[in-house]
Design a protein around this nucleic acid. Sequence first.
DNA 1: ATACTAATTAGCTAATTTGCCAATCTCTGC
DNA 2: GCAGAGATTGGCAAATTAGCTAATTAGTAT
Lengths: 125, 125
Amino acid sequence: MLDMEQKLKIFKALSNETRFLIFKNVFTGGYTCSLDKKQPGVEVNPIATCVSTVAEHFNFSLPTISAHIKELKEAKIISVEKKGNKVYIEPNIETIREMAGCFQTLVTNFDNNRALFFDHTLALK
Amino acid sequence: MLDMEQKLKIFKALSNETRFLIFKNVFTGGYTCSLDKKQPGVEVNPIATCVSTVAEHFNFSLPTISAHIKELKEAKIISVEKKGNKVYIEPNIETIREMAGCFQTLVTNFDNNRALFFDHTLALK
DNA sequence: ATACTAATTAGCTAATTTGCCAATCTCTGC
DNA sequence: GCAGAGATTGGCAAATTAGCTAATTAGTAT
């Protein structure tokens, strides 16, 4: 279960357009597959990518993109793994699953409370 | 459907601890009911409250809380309605429902894609 | 060893955010 | 009309964020 501090980090990480777009592309496979032809034995999540590949999609410097990726990592939205020279980035789907659950719980409880207020029998159904 | 700009506003609004707590309390009924004894005919959502009631829960000035509430309103997380002297605040559950849907869609699509990659028949099920 | 690539760190500036107080506006009640 | 309560606006200071370049670290390849 995500505590408040963790949720705040997630919201902050996703509140910046650049980070949001990185997040979107990492989770939907928007970046080219990073399986490296020079390192055919390296096992990497097929939709993973690396910091400089991400940077190619933006008009920002590599250090800037690196810092954004660090923030996404600290929010546990992505995870990173250094293999050889590169840092591979992978989506951390469990965090997103938790967020989906949190919002859904809020909606469900809200609907139940509303039913409870206006029609007691409905809430018990 | 929420566009990216709207999502960014929502994430930004919820990335601040004070705004997050206001959000939480407005949606879970954490504030005292604001049905005004002096205005018994006024119809108000039972879990609505007003700006100064919210401010009582924080060690921040009223203008500061007012600004936070404005940001939550512009993100369409809450809606406000002026009745007489006061501004009543109500949860905007539809926005939260949309957020729940967005996250859930992302998770579902991710899981399907993963299944597609590793086992084609699974994805078709 | 040297050179090259990938990435991070450090130090800086500009812009944004978050708080405050004082002033103003709006509505209620006398 | 005037006083008072509720709320917003404007102007300011401090803190944070987001970008840059230059320097550094880590790994690869010659």
